[in-house]
Design a protein around this nucleic acid. Structure first.
Lengths: 259, 259
DNA sequence: AGATATTTGTTCGTATGTATT
DNA sequence: TAATACATACGAACAAATATC
């Protein structure tokens, strides 16, 4: 019966009436689309925008703040400063998606159930989109996994490099959806790395197995053998899940916090 | 050499110095975690927060605005009002993710490449998590697809109902990652529905085929036959992709705009 | 139902910081 | 270096919303 309320609405109370600054933020969005503005173009300055949308400076600032948090504009001071339209960055999007996942108390099984699906598809779709520079970078990344000291910092580096391999691959994926989510999951797992010093040999074995998989993946990618790429990545993920399960149980801590 | 700049940084210039309001927003985030605040708890009122973080009211408001846009708090006026910690809602997260995808100019192929992977996994993981009420709702949804008038509004309704089936299924998926993304893709496709009146028979055939798949899926879900569920959903997606391709080519318009 | 107290929402004026010329 | 143009920050006053009595 009221105007606009949330769809979920269990017992939680939500704001009933939209704020003026929010409405102006949406008006600006619509205005941007109507004017066919593209990334890089400047918006009018604060004073003019305030006049255009008929509100005070402070209110307009809150509206711009909203767009800025959404990653749609960047604001700069100085002459020729002001709000410029921006493409939403990967970093900004994931930060916001992580806020959501923070409350979902994900388990390792759940993360890997998703990762298996996405990562396999991503790897397959990357076939045929790699140049020599790409292969060089991938091989360099595998090289980093080779140096296995037994100090904590060394092990940490190895795990990071392993994830880098996947992020690198995602970078060459022509499908933005797969690329985004593959990278998102890798970043999620990155925060999740907690060294456990009580199972050093499990760690070593995993490192070796991973390196093998990465090498074989590069080979299959060179041959442009889709079937092999898919199969290898699937097996790789199966084993990675098993290993991760041995080490920890829950993936939910402090995802929200930006380090 | 400067302090904090974006990782992407092609030719685009980005703000060099972090703003005070942004820093305070992050300080508040940290404070929330440090205080072990959970969803539902109130934050101190503006005046006290401004004192706590030593800034003016306007600045603090911009910081709160940032958190609000991120969906982390709701703010209300009146006695016992103020900012209360909220779980980030699905709607908010997708809105922000859509902002990102708006700039990626997705093609139908790309959306379906992702959808196939996610939807199959989602359907399989939902096996064993459906009660009688769930089945009743699914069957009701299939029923809606049956009434096929030839008016535009009727056809529109049918397509919506078809997507509802998938959203419904996602709702019972125990994996938040799969559930979220399955629903996200459905919502993405929902905006994409543009009726084309020039190919009415293709439309009818697709409607019939879809209904069959949905019915068979329900059967397989009742039998808790994982293998069949996976296979059916995979075939279902293959055909859905082919049909969608017949109708349109690009999925990128106005994803950003909230209707 | 109405008055009131409480808390956010909006506005203005002014001062400061920063980047361009 | 100085002048200029712009965003950023502050503080005080007033407006609007809403829970409670």
């Amino acid at each position: 019966m009221t105007s606009g309320e949330a769809t979920l609405g269990s017992g939680m109370r939500v704001p009933q009436k939209r704020k003026r600054s929010d409405m102006i933020a949406e008006e600006i969005k619509r205005w941007i689309i109507a004017e066919h503005k593209v990334a890089g173009e400047r918006l009018p300055q604060e004073r003019d925008l305030a006049a255009l949308f008929d509100c005070a400076k402070g209110t307009l600032r809150e509206a711009l703040k909203s767009l800025e948090v959404q990653g749609l504009i960047n604001v700069r001071t100085g002459p020729n400063g002001g709000a410029v339209l921006a493409e939403v960055s990967y970093d900004r999007s994931t930060e916001l998606l992580r806020n959501y996942m923070h409350f979902q108390n994900l388990t390792v099984e759940q993360v890997y159930e998703f990762r298996k699906a996405v990562e396999v598809e991503m790897a397959v779709s990357v076939v045929g989109h790699l140049d020599e520079e790409a292969f060089a970078r991938l091989e360099e990344s595998v090289g980093c996994c080779a140096c296995s000291g037994h100090k904590e910092s060394e092990q940490m580096k190895v795990r990071q490099a392993e994830l880098d391999f996947h992020v690198l691959l995602a970078q060459y994926c022509p499908n933005p959806l797969l690329s985004f989510h593959s990278r998102f999951i890798s970043d999620l797992l990155r925060d999740f790395i907690r060294l456990r010093t009580d199972v050093p040999d499990a760690f070593d074995k995993f490192t070796t197995v991973n390196r093998d998989f990465h090498r074989q993946l590069i080979d299959a990618l060179r041959r442009e053998d889709r079937e092999a790429v898919g199969r290898l990545m699937r097996e790789h993920m199966e084993l990675a899940e098993r290993f991760t399960l041995e080490l920890e149980g829950v993936v939910s801590e402090n995802l929200m916090l930006v380090p």
